[in-house]
Every structure is written in C-alpha cells, then in structure tokens.
Amino acid sequence: MSRAPAATRAPAAGRAPSIWRRNLATWVTLVLLVLLTLALAYLPLGRLNLPVALVIAAAKAALVAVVFMELRTGRPLFRLVAGAALFWIAIMFVLAFADIAMRAG
C-alpha cells in the first residue's frame, strides 16, 4: 500500500486548515454549480438542456466522490468499485435504450 491507513497516521496539529481548505473549496464550487445549473435550466437550449444539466450533475457527483469521499487519496480498489458501478449502470441504460430507441413505428 502506498499510504498508511488514516488511523495510524499521527494526528498533526496543523491539519485542520488543510481539511477546511479542500472541503470548503469543494463546497463553494458545488453551490456555484447548483446556481449555474439552475440558471441554465431556464435558458432555451432545446435538446441540449438535458445533457447540460446531467453533465453539471456528474461534475458535482464527481467532486463529492473525489474530495468528500476521499476517492482520490484512498485505495485504488475503491476507485475500481465506484467505476464498476458506473460501468454497469451504463450497460443497463445503453442496452435498454437499444430497445426503446430503435423500435419500429
């Protein structure tokens, strides 16, 4: 393992600022993204409204996963689990839509 598990790391006195920094910055970004997606929802983009909203949602979810859920610093195995979930959800949607989007008439 490349990094000692959290519980064995010696608690460092000055770590509070770095914890605040990254999580607060993430929270601010998330709130801004909420406001952005809210504003864009009222902009008539035609068929792009849905993809734009979903991309912003994906970005927010990624931020929560990577920073709050510590996916970036945790074991690679956890990233694999998260990736597997996403992959199988994609399979479900792609193959199901292969039916519904391709029906005759």
């Binding site: 199988w88 399979i91 193959l95 292969a98 039916d99 989007a101 391709m102 029906r103 005759a104």
Partner: peptide
Amino acid sequence: GFFVWGHHMFVAGQSRYASIVF
C-alpha cells in the same frame, strides 16, 4: 451475464436491433 437479458424478450415487442445485439 449482465449483457444478455434481452434474450428473454425476443417475442415481447423488443426492437429487432436490440434483439440481435442480445
């Protein structure tokens, strides 16, 4: 095994395209 479920639905009204994939 997760990619084949539509083979239960060949005659259910599923699109031919999806049926061929499955």
